Amino acid sequence: MKRILAWLCGLLSALGITACDYINVKELKPGVSTSAEVRERFGPPHMEWRNEDGSLTWEFSRQPEGIECFMITIGPDQILRRIDQVLNEETFAKVQHGMNGDQVRRLLGKPASSQFFQLKQETVWEWRISRGPDGTNDPVFFTVSFNNEGRVTGTGRHTQFKR
């Protein structure tokens, strides 16, 4: 039964349905679970980064409709080290002026959207971070603005009010 649930959650995650993420995160144990178990539960990572210590960090973004991005670190021994949900205030504060797009992607994962504004000559990436304040369904987004050289010029947030 547990194996069927894990398979179903993996399938739903691959389709972008995040209801099983809570179960997956709770059942994976840092220091115990293997990289194969992570892949079984989350599917293939959207991006993979090599870290200086020989570990890998896998990105599992739930954008554009979800509000989470998991960065999962796997040690050189193929054992899970940590699971971080990075769309949070602590990580947003790490985005600094002058960073490039790769550095921002490494922190926050793939954005929900990217748009170029001709008049301002800037590109804005946005991540959906909340389903809406005060129980509304109006989504809230965190944004990062880049200049023509691809460097961060600022961050912000906005609510997309539904009519």
Rank of each mutant, 00 (worst) to 15 (best):
M71D: 06
F142R: 14
I74P: 04
Q78I: 03
H46C: 02
A36Y: 14
S114Q: 14
D102G: 08
G66S: 06
E65W: 15
G135W: 13
H158R: 07
L80H: 01
G75P: 06
T34M: 14
P64E: 03
Q118A: 10
A14L: 13
M47W: 06
A112E: 10
T34Y: 12
C20V: 07
L108F: 05
G156P: 04
A14W: 14
L56W: 07
R157Q: 05
E126A: 14
F116Y: 10
G109C: 11
T143V: 11
V95R: 10
E89P: 01
V144F: 06
G31P: 13
H46W: 05
M99Y: 10
I17Y: 07
S130C: 11
T155I: 04
R163F: 11
W125I: 05
F70C: 13
V144L: 08
T73I: 09
G154K: 01
I23M: 13
N51G: 03
V95M: 11
L80W: 01
A14S: 12
P76S: 13
F142C: 13
P45Q: 13
I83A: 11
E65K: 15
E27I: 10
A19K: 07
R106C: 06
E52S: 11
K29N: 11
P44I: 11
G156H: 05
I79C: 09
G135L: 14
I17F: 09
E59H: 01
V38I: 12
L15S: 04
